[in-house]
């Protein structure tokens, strides 16, 4: 469970005050709002990529608001995938495990398990530069899930995809939701994303939760 309590973020002219919401374990929550309303900023604060001014972030009871991003155990799927361009697909998928000093055969097993789950087995030894948008997002998902994170953050993961690819990704995300029982926060401005995926919708307007 993730609880955001009285979160305030200040950056230049842009301020967010007293953000409060809660995401129950196993729920897929969609955070909606217009471009520039601060929804990505909130996500970055949860991930630890942005300093918070005050407030608490509780992940399963533990206050993570002062932890480094590397210590938070939160998976991250950014908008454009941001796959590691200097590595091939399997190195991307296994990256978090390599950092955790898993043994090679353990990493290989986990990578092939993820590839099965995401339907990307045929891509494993490919370079990043040749991948399609949908393939990139699948790999980004797998990379973020590899280390069994307690929570998953998705930042507009489908916004750059064409309609048919989007529908495939909806199917995949619904399948992951069911099979892995993931707790997730999905930031988007798309009503369709929210309608199809969300267990709960949080809307943000003018820096406030409504």
């Amino acid at each position: 469970m993730l609880a955001v309590k009285n979160l305030s973020i200040r950056q230049g002219d842009f301020n967010l005050h007293d953000i409060n919401f809660q995401i129950e374990k196993g729920k897929y929550v969609v955070l909606m709002g217009k471009t520039g309303c601060g929804k990505t900023t909130i996500m970055e604060a949860i991930l630890g990529l942005r300093k918070i001014h005050s407030g608490e972030l509780l992940l399963n009871g533990l206050d993570i608001s002062r932890l480094k991003p590397s210590e938070r155990m939160i998976g991250y799927v950014p908008q454009d995938g941001a796959l590691f361009s200097s590595m091939d697909v399997q190195s991307n998928l296994g990256f978090a495990l390599r950092i955790r000093k898993w043994k090679k055969d353990q990493i290989a097993a986990r990578v092939s398990e993820l590839a099965d789950l995401l339907g990307v087995d045929y891509l494993l030894s490919r370079k990043i530069s040749g991948l399609s948008g949908g393939e990139r997002q699948r790999i980004a998902l797998g990379r973020g899930l590899a280390f069994y994170p307690e929570f998953l953050c998705l930042d507009e993961p489908l916004s750059a995809l064409d309609e048919p690819t989007r529908d495939e990704m909806y199917e995949l995300l619904l399948k992951l939701k069911k099979e892995l029982n993931i707790t997730a926060l999905h930031v988007t401005h798309s009503k369709k994303d929210a309608k199809i995926l969300a267990d709960q919708i949080i809307k943000i307007e003018d820096g406030k939760i409504v």
Partner: peptide
């Protein structure tokens, strides 16, 4: 773009890594 590095941080990297 620093996005790739940020993702690496969430995956367990130190800034140096």
């Amino acid at each position: 773009n620093s996005r790739q590095e940020e993702v690496a941080l969430t995956l367990g990297c130190s800034k140096g890594q």
